[in-house]
Design a protein around this nucleic acid. Structure first.
Lengths: 227, 227
DNA sequence: CAAGGGTGTTACTCAAGAGTAACACCTCAT
DNA sequence: ATGAGGTGTTACTCTTGAGTAACACCCTTG
């Protein structure tokens, strides 16, 4: 996104005011920038607490301009959710492609998903507020989420069957770690102390190893034996 | 609405239409019922997608009635959040009281918090939508959450120091499991197939043991993880 | 049987914010 | 230059929903 384009960049939000040449191409870029700005605001302050005027101001234009790029406010929210599931699906398929072991696939998925979610585009994403979508949009997103969920549960089940992990309820297991992951946007801030990849690795480890009790599980009488 | 009929129990929401005797006592009961109904709706459809008329309808009264029990809509949301942090604080203190081992305290906290959160009162609670509170309310809630967070991080650090768990970043660890827990309300439904205590136990295990890789990570010669 | 406090209603006000109409400017190909 | 198409604005409309005023109906207690 941030090319070596000379001079301009009059705005914080990338890609709006530097018009990339040809019409239809610019249109796409701007639409993207709009979704990004809106998504961030939605994530931080919520869908209904963010007005179109706010978003427009972010891009230093006025509200009616936005309607050149999106049909209405709900479409923006829908796009955000599409990006979000899209990233999860991508990570899932990538994981299937890259490794064989079910457990390792889960790790890859988690890492890939988190990495995407904390990327520039990802930070725009809203995982909460699915209830603010129109029923039609919600249905579309839900459907995709359900498919993904089923895939993940299957992975967990396979990991159990392969003896890689102890038996557990796949449904709850998936709820568990997806909950942890989907909550990241609540506290993550781009440019904060934590890099996305860092979080991805740490979280994935927690998913698989938990708080990772030490073998001898020191007695309640505590006694640190060599870290 | 003909009242006073001995049969009563004319409404789903407990405690509204069966007037418990003395005035000030009933007032409290009704206020409680109102918060509960509202909190559930907020959790399911979001703060802004829930109108006061909706809430009133739930209780089979009309909007102006609600104003006899709360100052305004924001106060309801605040009460929900107060209940939520309150439950977390309770669970935390209980954990400190009951056991000594830092790791065991974390488990107790998690179990206690989840159990409360899935209790009848708990299901009303909104953990999302903190951004829909007034800045003043938000400040109050935030403050308490920060204190709790600090306590939890300390527990994690202590568990590390005591050699109970492998070293890790306490901040991320707490974000991790609190994320998983706070997301429960997204999918939990009272009277669904999963009981609150069940979830509490399973999640707490996941927090501590993760997906619990088997020792040799191989054969399905699983040992009995007796219930 | 009044009187008064509590319960509940209908019928409003009022602000905010999504969405639109209409116009004004710029710039580029002919 | 000129008109066409894209960019951007100001100044609205209209709906929704929070909050309120004002009244009507009990019950209880003297």
């Amino acid at each position: 996104m941030s090319e070596g384009v000379p001079g301009k960049d009059r705005n914080l939000i990338a890609g709006w005011h530097d018009a990339p040449a040809r019409a239809s191409e610019r249109r796409e870029t701007r639409r993207r920038a709009l979704i990004l700005a809106a998504g961030r605001a939605f994530g931080r302050r919520g869908f209904h607490n963010t007005t179109l005027d706010d978003i427009a101001a972010q891009l230093s234009v006025t509200k009616p301009m936005l309607y050149r790029y999106v049909r209405n406010k709900h479409e923006i929210l829908y796009e955000c959710h599409r990006i979000a599931v899209g990233m999860a699906e991508e990570a899932y398929e990538e994981a299937l492609r890259q490794v064989e072991s079910p457990l390792e696939r889960i790790r890859r998925f988690s890492e890939g998903y988190i990495t995407r979610m904390t990327s520039e585009l990802g930070t725009c994403v809203v995982l909460t507020e699915y209830y603010s979508m129109t029923p039609e949009h919600n249905e579309l997103i839900e459907r995709r989420r359900r498919v993904l969920d089923a895939g993940l549960r299957q992975l967990v089940q396979q990991a159990v069957d392969a003896g890689e992990i102890e038996p557990c309820d796949p449904k709850l297991a998936v709820f568990f770690f997806m909950g942890a992951i989907n909550n990241i946007n609540r506290w993550f801030t781009e440019g904060g102390p934590l890099a996305g990849e860092e979080i991805a690795v740490v979280f994935s480890n927690h998913i698989i190893n938990g708080l990772r009790p030490t073998r001898e599980g020191a007695r309640p009488g505590r006694e640190a034996s060599g870290a």
